[in-house]
Nucleic acid binder design. Structure first.
Lengths: 247, 247
DNA sequence: GTCCTTGTCGAACGTTGTTCGATCAGGTCG
DNA sequence: CGACCTGATCGAACAACGTTCGACAAGGAC
């Protein structure tokens, strides 16, 4: 197989087109914007989870490579922050009604958890992050108009958002992890919990009377029930700050 | 350069010693045990944080390579679980005194937080993990002997450990992150918070009256204060379950 | 001496985040 | 029109990562 002078070397995989025949690099796809990248990243997360999210995978989702993303986004960390804020924007606040403050707070927590878990394990982004967009001020103002009439002190409301989002985010995070990492192993949640239960029951009875008595409640109970308990605990605590618990 | 039968081929980088002259591979260092590996990993975390923790780095800490660890540990995930359990074992429970249940619970939370933050950002291991060792049963039994005399229902105590450890672990986790990831950027926490404060104050005043009024409380307040508030909130909620709030 | 088990370890594989330099498209100015 | 610049794209490469493989060593059992 001889080649004339001036022709390009071809490797075994195929002969490249000459430059003037090559299609433009971004032919037939949507323009690369920051929003499109965030949306693509979220699509990858929904499909493959956070572990499946790589810059190359996001690029592939957009019909390009990883390097092209770095013009619009500083690094992966910033992309994650943008994805987080994009998810938080899905929240929808009802008209605040102080007479039903408990119910509305509980509903908000449920909604937040639902949004986080609906995007696989996106909840692990929520810890240590603050939405730097308008959502922060909006939610905070909503909390004040809801709880101020109930008589809850300012500084309590000011701190409340943190504690609530920490609990909800943390819970959704744990929920998304499953039990995969518990023993570095390959057990199903049921197997793991019965193993743990058996272990607890095998301990000396005189040392752990209470624990063994309630072992079913300890490891039983669905995530919904456990989540609701934590919210209820905090709402009860919040009510003790109220001068007018009924609004 | 001829080689006799049975000698090893040498590559360009250097001629190997003959086998009978080579020192034993694990000469002059402590034997490689699972405990030693966990301890070395913890040393690496204390020095370089979780991001600096790689299998190669742990191996180096022990005077060997990464591959040698895999005989004693299934994978990195399992090593992390072992490190987590090792850290949890640092907890020390006082004699439970139901008359001082609030104080003792608060102290326990403080201690837990102190242990987690004392090992850099080891707190990020705590989320989604359950200590599979004896500590789980010990802490649970401690909670029951402390809170049962106060009249708190069984199922409340059973769920309490989860909620508390979630809050403490989540808080310590956020604390360890600093504000590095907030904007994918390079701002100090102070710069970031004043930036956020300025942004909130620049919003239309008629839309965010409360938020702008308490903006200092929102972004101010040290971590100790915020942590204590969350604990206090949960303790107040817990007290509402008690039939005998004073023990 | 031969076999087997318990460890040890260098080299390699595939994947990751990120950077560099070349290149292209489109607009602006002389 | 051509020269120049700027915004954007992308292939190739780099260093680091977790993990696997196969070769090898030491020590006990028969």
């Amino acid at each position: 197989m001889t080649q004339g002078a001036g022709t390009r070397w071809s490797d075994a995989s195929g002969v490249p087109e000459p430059p003037w025949r090559r299609a433009p690099r971004s032919a037939g796809r949507a323009p690369l914007t920051r929003e499109a990248i965030v949306e693509a990243a979220l699509r990858v997360i929904d499909a493959d989870g956070m572990d499946g999210l790589s810059m190359r995978r996001v690029g592939e989702e957009l019909g390009t490579g990883a390097a092209s993303l770095y013009w619009h986004v500083r690094n992966k960390e910033q992309l994650l922050q943008l994805v987080f804020e994009r998810v938080i924007e899905e929240m929808q606040l009802p008209e605040p009604d102080p007479a039903r403050w408990r119910e509305q707070l509980s509903d908000l927590a449920d909604q937040m958890r639902a949004i986080l878990t609906s995007h696989r394990d996106v909840a692990r982004l929520s810890l240590g992050r603050i939405p730097s967009g308008p959502m922060l001020a909006v939610v905070n103002e909503w909390l004040f108009t809801l709880l101020k009439p109930v008589g809850i002190p300012d500084n309590v409301i000011a701190y409340l958002g943190d504690v609530f989002s920490l609990y909800v985010g943390g819970f959704a995070f744990e929920e998304s992890l499953g039990t995969a990492s518990f023993t570095g192993g390959d057990l199903s949640p049921e197997q793991f919990f019965t193993m743990l239960k058996d272990y607890v029951m095998s301990l000396p009875a005189e040392l752990f009377p209470h624990t063994q008595r309630v072992v079913d409640a300890l490891f039983g109970g669905g995530p919904d029930e456990r989540f609701a308990f934590g919210i209820d605990l905090m709402l009860r605590g919040l009510a003790t700050y109220a001068s007018d618990p009924e609004g």
